[in-house]
């Protein structure tokens, strides 16, 4: 063996520490992936095979029937139109809620961090407080308010609720991002004669792409996963997918169709799952910016 003088990259050896870390990571991954695996496998099996009870095994006879049934003909109570009704309801709720809450949060964050609005700090304090009070506290008063205005149980109602409750976190997110931009940029634009809206639209907004992506991820996953507000404010016509999923799984007529339930659950989870997979890097950035709620 030739003993050569140390040169170039230092060789790495597998140490006990390292093996421990890898083992922990592997176990954690299995722990979180196993339920997903079981759900996926179950949704691809026939009921006969499920009754045999080997829940982890790959299906011996692959079937997509449960997925079709879950989408188009599963029953919630008396209606048997599948979960697609809920899917489109959720989309109808999602798009205006996400767009409006981000637009509003973006402008308030900009106003709070660049313009010395009178009482800006107090407003920000109140918003922060709003972000941490449990939602349940607001439910009953809001129901009363909407009932008197006649908006209760409508698409507009649920969108307004999502915008109101998204506003504190969105404002916080944008304010923190804008606080990190050099203030001299804003001063230069002031000297150049920019006003509130022209500076926002021409200078600040074009620099906001990263935080707009983070905000979109947060709002899309948050609003899609919402159950409580949808159930309370949307009304029978507009129940979101999460509520319908619950109705399908809990409608207890005849035999429990586990494969259909699993398929419906997977379908409901597809939007947030896609968001996570497509935007993992950005999502981590959102968490790092300290504005992710549960």
């Amino acid at each position: 063996m030739t003993t050569s003088a140390p040169s170039g990259r230092k060789p790495r050896h597998l140490t006990v520490d390292r093996i421990g870390v890898y083992a922990f990571l592997a176990i954690a991954a299995v722990f979180f992936l196993l339920p997903l695996w079981i759900m996926l496998m179950t949704s691809l099996k026939t009921m006969e095979e499920i009754r045999l009870g080997s829940i982890i095994a790959f299906p011996s006879e692959l079937t997509f029937e449960p997925w079709l049934k879950a989408w188009a003909s599963a029953c919630t109570g008396l209606d048997c139109n599948g979960i697609r009704v809920g899917f489109w309801n959720s989309v109808k709720i999602l798009i205006p809620s996400v767009a409006l809450s981000i637009a509003l949060g973006c402008v308030t964050g900009y106003a709070l961090s660049f313009w010395r609005v009178k009482g800006a700090n107090m407003m920000f304090g109140i918003l922060l407080l709003g972000a941490f009070i449990p939602y349940q506290v607001f439910l009953y008063p809001l129901v009363r308010i909407f009932a008197t205005t006649g908006l209760y149980n409508s698409l507009a109602c649920i969108v307004i609720v999502h915008v109101i409750f998204g506003l504190p976190v969105m404002t916080l997110l944008f304010r923190n991002f804008y606080a990190g931009l050099p203030i001299e940029l804003f001063k230069a634009a002031r000297v150049d004669g920019g006003g509130f809206w022209s500076i926002f639209l021409l200078v600040i907004l074009p620099m906001s792409t990263p935080i707009l992506i983070v905000a979109t991820i947060l709002q899309v996953t948050g609003i899609w996963n919402d159950f409580l507000f949808g159930l309370t404010f949307a009304g029978r016509e507009n129940l979101p997918m999460t509520v319908q999923l619950n109705n399908i799984v809990n409608s207890t007529q005849g035999e429990r169709t586990y494969n259909v339930d699993m398929a419906a659950t997977m379908l409901t989870a597809i939007v947030p799952l896609a968001v996570y997979f497509v935007s993992g890097r950005w999502f981590v950035r959102g968490i790092a910016s300290g504005a992710v709620k549960g």
Partner: peptide
């Protein structure tokens, strides 16, 4: 600022990126 007849140059350049 815009009505004061001034122009300003900053340390961080402050160019609109």
């Amino acid at each position: 600022p815009k009505d004061r007849g001034i122009a300003m140059v900053f340390q961080s350049y402050a160019l609109y990126p």
